[in-house]
């Protein structure tokens, strides 16, 4: 007998994500899910962001297969850090966030940043309850990475290309990279910056600051 059902396979994850989103909105938080390949500079970008984003209270959830190292790096800038170890899992799921949220004092935060496990592929498919996905690439990853990972390019609200300070030393066709992105997602902003030198950080901080302000409760 054939049983005909049509159902979204990730229904349960999506339901938990919707609950997370409700909890975060009730606390007037703006939440991003930062997704990029291993070593593209996610933690470095967050360190710089927390140093420079003045007047915004930031909480961080860091996903890694193992180790506490990224959380330790972030703990220098905010007390509100939760490390989630996914063990064998190569991405965060909504349930990880649900379990991490009680460890944060949401009433004392304006912005929640989730650093996903270093991976450009599957984190994209799992809704966590964030307001925006931020896809991250680096000069050192090569100029073909956007073209090879259309899903993150299409799903991101903003894209970051980091390690711009390495551009003089690495063959990287910036025009090709930009045009691959335009083709996949004509309207997404592409922010080119270096977390090491701090050059190009302004538009990124502005992008975050504006959204945090929009999410804040009207006084």
């Amino acid at each position: 007998m054939h049983v005909s059902v049509v159902q979204n396979v990730l229904k349960l994850n999506d339901e938990i994500a919707a609950m997370n989103r409700q909890v975060l909105h009730n606390a007037s938080l703006f939440t991003i899910d930062l997704i990029g390949a291993p070593g593209c500079g996610k933690t470095a970008l967050l360190e710089k962001t927390l140093q420079e984003l003045k007047g915004v209270r930031v909480g961080v959830i860091v996903g890694d297969l193992t180790t506490q190292r990224d959380a330790d790096r972030m703990a220098r800038f905010t007390e509100q850090v939760v490390q989630v170890n996914t063990g064998k899992g190569c991405h965060l799921e909504a349930n990880h966030i649900k379990e991490a949220l009680p460890h944060l004092d949401l009433g004392k935060l304006d912005l929640l940043i989730i650093e996903n496990v270093g991976n450009l592929i599957c984190p994209v498919g799992f809704d966590l309850g964030q307001d925006a996905k931020v896809g991250m690439f680096a000069i050192s990853g090569g100029d073909d990475k956007a073209a090879k990972h259309p899903y993150i390019v299409m799903e991101s609200a903003v894209l970051v290309l980091s390690k711009m300070d390495l551009l003089p030393y690495i063959p990287f066709d910036l025009e090709l990279f930009r045009s691959d992105i335009r083709r996949l997602n004509p309207n997404v902003p592409l922010l080119e910056l270096s977390a090491t030198t701090g050059k190009g950080m302004e538009p990124w901080l502005k992008w975050l600051g504006e959204r945090v302000k929009q999410a804040a409760p009207v006084a």
Binding site: H2, V3, V5, V6, P150, R183, L184, P186
Partner: peptide
Amino acid sequence: TPCPVGGNDLKLTGIDVL
């Protein structure tokens, strides 16, 4: 150059059982 649309479905579409 065209743009891709959609493409992120992940659906169970049926089950064959005895």
